[in-house]
Structures are given as structure tokens and as C-alpha cells.
């Protein structure tokens, strides 16, 4: 099992990892800034800002998560291909 000591993360994954963390920080930080949305106006269809803003944050967070997922999933494919070349058939 010597092949397991090979580096299995591609070199560019660190940069990409940083971008992923940044993308994921957005849906964590925005809901924590309560003072930015703890108010009644403007209302939409009678719903105070406080409520509709937080509901609107949900699809926003999904967009950021999906972009992060795309990035990670494609770097996973890179990793798999690279390792396939480096190690041959491990199984």
C-alpha cells in the first residue's frame, strides 16, 4: 500500500479551497449580522423586512453552496484523474 503515502491533493486545490471557504463564509456571516435586518420596513405584501429578508437569505445561501459544490466536485474529478495516472490501478 505504498501508494497511499503519495500526495493525493492536486497542487491547485489549496487556492481553490480558499475560494470555497470564502464562498461558504457568506451564508454564515450574513444571518449573524442581526442589526442589519432587525427592522419592520420595507415590508413586502405585508410581511416585515425582518421575516422576508431571512427567508430570502435561504435561496441566496443555496446559490453560494451550489457554486462551492461545483468547485469541489470538479477538483475531486481532477484529483481522481491525477491519481489514476500517478498510481495506476490501485484496486
Amino acid at each position: 500500500m505504498a501508494s497511499r503515502s503519495e500526495p493525493i491533493r492536486p497542487r491547485h486545490s489549496r487556492n481553490r479551497g480558499g475560494l470555497v471557504v470564502l464562498l461558504l463564509a457568506v451564508p454564515v456571516v450574513l444571518p449573524l449580522l442581526v442589526s442589519t435586518y432587525a427592522r419592520v420596513d420595507p415590508t413586502i405584501a405585508g410581511i416585515p423586512f425582518f421575516f422576508w429578508y431571512q427567508l430570502a437569505l435561504i435561496p441566496v445561501s443555496v446559490v453560494f453552496l451550489l457554486i462551492a459544490y461545483r468547485l469541489v466536485a470538479s477538483s475531486g474529478r481532477d484529483r481522481r484523474e491525477q491519481r489514476g495516472q500517478d498510481e495506476g490501478d490501485v484496486r
Binding site: 451564508p27 454564515v28 444571518p31 453552496l65 462551492a68
Partner: peptide, 11 residues
């Protein structure tokens, strides 16, 4: 409960 279940997914 809403911001809580937003924050949990990036984690």
C-alpha cells in the same frame, strides 16, 4: 430557527 438552519449547511 431560520438563520440557524441557514448557517448549519456551510458547516
Amino acid at each position: 430557527a431560520v438563520p440557524y438552519t441557514i448557517i448549519v449547511y456551510p458547516i
